[in-house]
Design a protein around this nucleic acid. Structure first.
Lengths: 161, 161
DNA sequence: CCTGAAAATCGCAGTCG
DNA sequence: CGACTGCGATTTTCAGG
């Protein structure tokens, strides 16, 4: 499952999470590898599915979406189709997690205004009951994963396949 | 606030959100601009703070963090310092949102195991009471913002302050 | 915003440890 | 088998229109 990443792989992941547009030459320098060696490592991480993609991050407020909210959706029954359709259709839904607990789904929504958010919530209310919380701020701007096989390997068994 | 983005800017944002490593040449082609014009647009979006960065996305499970959880933190009083310290210290905390509602903070945590998650939650319990939900799956893999000044400009006033 | 040339980078070979 | 070196193509960057 975990593709057995060594320290160099982790260094690469850290750098590319920090700056996804890093040239392979510069990346090589930072992890003490030649450009071609770094390239091969990166290609391997990509095809192994460890790196799933590279994306620009956009400031929501500056892009005209000053309202962010977290909506929890309590979804009776198991008919996922309508929700999935909504996820595809409404690009304002930035993220959707299916979770344990009373609320089956947790959605992160960006809106142009409270009115806009209200419209979005109304659409969700056709599926189930919702709990909405506005987002004041994001105290954790951005950061990648822990750099390396995380220190806290507590209770290590991840379910020995 | 919103830096007055035109259709071309939005096209650029869409492309770069989909593939952050797109060459400026290729980007130019896709938005019908010369490479240098595309470059200037991108530079402008970057320095205006609309594009906040470029990041590689990593598959959590493949990187050895198969357990993801959402933890809501009910934080009595207004002493933010200890939490902020924890956010800096613990890279397992992927995201932190300060929200309205009974729970002041919402955290997204990645862990190597349930035991590891338990340790994380214990640390948070020193700050306040928590509600934890495991994440089954993420039905919405990745997607950028809505392409353009969002259709639903409903109730347009974003609160004139 | 486009054209055009210099510099850097990328991708592909080949070769060594 | 994994990592370093040399050449052609592409891309980036900077000047000028």
């Amino acid at each position: 499952m975990t593709e057995n990443l060594d320290a160099t792989d982790w260094a690469i992941l850290t750098e590319l999470q920090r700056d996804g547009r890093l040239s392979l030459t510069e990346l090589g320098k930072r992890v003490s590898l030649s450009a071609s060696a770094a390239t091969e490592r990166v290609r391997r991480l990509e095809s192994a599915g460890v790196i799933t993609g590279y994306h620009a991050r956009v400031d929501l407020a500056k892009a005209g979406l000053p309202v962010t909210a977290v909506v929890r959706l309590k979804y009776p029954g198991n008919r996922h189709a309508p929700l999935h359709a909504l996820l595809r259709e409404r690009a304002e839904i930035l993220e959707c997690l299916r979770t344990t607990g009373e609320d089956c789904y947790l959605l992160k929504i960006a809106a142009t205004s409270l009115g806009h958010l209200e419209t979005m919530v109304d659409e969700l209310l056709e599926l189930g009951s919702t709990t909405t919380n506005l987002v004041y701020s994001e105290p954790l701007p951005y950061r990648g994963l822990p750099a390396g096989p995380v220190g806290g390997r507590v209770g290590g068994q991840t379910g020995g396949g």
